[in-house]
Nucleic acid binder design. Structure first.
Lengths: 229, 229
DNA sequence: CTATATCAGATCCTATACGATATTGTATTT
DNA sequence: AAATACAATATCGTATAGGATCTGATATAG
């Protein structure tokens, strides 16, 4: 490997991902996830730019992306604000939507399952249970929400339909759920349902995977619906 | 109504929608639709800004939105370019995706159908057939694609699930189809299928609406698949 | 003739400055 | 006392300028 190539590789690794916009996007995303920015509250561009330590332009681009993803709202000549807490109807619509896509994703994944893909998926599932170290409830649930997102995304990767995958990941389901439920714990049942999903994958049974996923999503919905009462 | 209120209303109507970013977004969108910007070709920000007559910042925000929607691609420190033409696999994935959502959308719409909603929908369908004036093939098909998008969106509005609706509208299905098919004519059959959909809505039959939509999407897919050969 | 190094042009990324608009608070009038 | 008119502040929207990086061409050495 030449020196120039090594240098280029270093740049690829060190500088490429740094693009300020990406960093700003992640920063805002995590602030929303951690509820540092409360749902519905204003997000002044210049304040954010000062806090993060960059100029306004990259903040603008990050907010534009977040707006398109539904995480923040924009009112012309008024400004940006964090998306308000979800209504029950939005929540039900989202789950009706997931129930149309995720069972089919599980079915496709079972069809395409390979030994290595199954091993990777089991590794992801195992990570969810062994969160290292005792932490406060909020952090623990935040970590769970991200791991769950990872698990579902991994299944959709195996399924192979990129339209379904990118759509569901773009919905930021788990972020919204976290904002709704951050103070509860409903993780144990979910882990068991994931296990029966894995069983279906191990058996290579598309129909069973589909049913297991449907049941998982439905039960998840029912668990969370209690938050509205 | 006070003078101040009248003035504010005027502003609402005249100035609010004008926000430069919106105009720029529409401009780029229509250029993509009209194939003035060929799939895969570069889109220099400053050139675009000069052509449209605005500064770079609004162009940047519009391109960020378009990137998130998959219509343009962005490479860090290289620039934006129009999304490349679709592969057959992407196309099939998209239709598998639509087949999961649109029949259910039609079913929900049939359930919620009201006389006024039906009348509006019939008006939209009628617009599709009476394109005024003789125009070239490309313009005619572009107009058809937009009208078809409008028709499907109207059904999803009636269905009432905003997650499904915004997701499908965000996929810009019809723009991609147009870019694929702009030089063919496959409109007549689609109009007939819309008609049988309307029949199901008139009868208030959710099951029939679901089946009609499934058939419409499947036939649409099969018609377009020929473009890959 | 091929490969490497250097240089120029183009483009993107970031920062700052200015003008336009909405919101908020105060004073005045009825 | 309540409502209206006015002014000040904060924020957004836009424009422009400068620094950093990539791409492509040219020249030189092997």
């Amino acid at each position: 490997m030449s020196l120039a190539t090594a240098k280029r590789d270093a740049r690829q690794v060190l500088l490429r991902p740094s693009s300020v916009v990406e960093a700003v996007y992640d920063s805002i995303y995590h602030r929303l996830m951690a509820l540092e920015i409360a749902p519905g509250s204003r997000i002044p561009i210049d304040v954010l730019a000062r806090e993060i330590g960059v100029s306004q332009t990259p903040v603008r681009e990050a907010l534009t992306r977040l707006e398109r993803e539904g995480l923040v709202r924009k009112e012309h000549l008024i400004g940006y604000s964090a998306a308000p807490q979800w209504t029950r109807k939005q929540f039900e619509d989202l789950y009706a939507f997931r129930l149309l896509l995720e069972p089919e994703g599980a079915r496709l994944a079972a069809q395409n399952m390979t030994p290595t893909a199954l091993r990777d998926l089991e590794a992801v599932a195992a990570d969810m249970e062994h969160g290292e170290g005792p932490v406060d409830r909020t952090t623990r649930y935040s970590r769970f929400a991200r791991a769950d997102a990872h698990f579902h995304d991994e299944i959709l990767k195996i399924a192979g339909n990129e339209v379904i995958r990118s759509t569901l990941s773009g919905q930021h389901v788990h972020l919204h759920i976290f904002r709704l439920m951050f103070n509860t714990r409903v993780t144990q049942e979910a882990l068991e349902e994931h296990e029966s999903l894995l069983d279906a994958f191990r058996a290579g049974d598309p129909r069973a995977a589909m049913d297991a996923m449907r049941e998982h999503v439905e039960r998840s919905r029912d668990r969370l619906l209690m938050a509205f009462e």
